[in-house]
Amino acid sequence: MSSGSVTEAALLEQLSALADGEVDPADTAVACARWRDDGRVRASWHAYHLIGDVLRSEDLAIEPSRDVAFLAAVRDRLSKEAVVLAPVPKAERGFRDAGEARPNDAGARTGRRWPWVVSSAVAAGFVGVVGTFTLTRPSAPVPAEAQALASAGSPTLVASRTDTAPTAVAASTPAPARSLALDVSGVVRDPALDTYLAAHKQFAGSTALGVPSAFLRSATVRNYGR
């Protein structure tokens, strides 16, 4: 493992990046191979994680002797505890084998658990349905009669049946006068339009405010990556 200090430094840097989760798959494979073959690399790897732990939490930056003392104290106390020796009841073993034939109190508990599981499963299914509905909303072109319905009022968004969906769409989104140039995923089909959006939002990113502005930029300028 002495193929020159430059390689060594580069490797360590790569290892550090790997510990931070910043290395692409190809480099990861290389770094892992070096880790496997070289004990010193493994030691560095451990050191990086230790550094990372300490950086993340001051609780982890304690003297090792404290751990040793704690462990010794625990062992000491354990050695003084009385040892409880009790036979396993037959019924308990039977329950484990048969699964649901658990006696009295325990059986009641199992029974009580089920309704909750069932209702949560139903709830999950419901959420799934609602989620699907919400996600498909924008892709559906708004029918003219639905728009008329919406302008007549009743902006209710409680859609439990599919046929009420168009009303909800018209009621909750401002219906554009002309072409809705959105595809199913809600992304503008016209790439040029994307460019304008990017430029518009890039400007937002250049204002005095830090965080969200850059976030916006990141989220909209997708064309560079082609």
Binding site: G186, P212, S213
Partner: peptide, 21 residues
């Protein structure tokens, strides 16, 4: 497409950047 949906928050914040000035 993660891309588009982020504007409101940022616009608000961008706006807030103008605001104090």
């Amino acid at each position: 497409m993660a891309s588009r949906a982020t504007s409101a928050f940022v616009l608000i914040c961008a706006g807030l950047a103008f605001a104090p000035i």
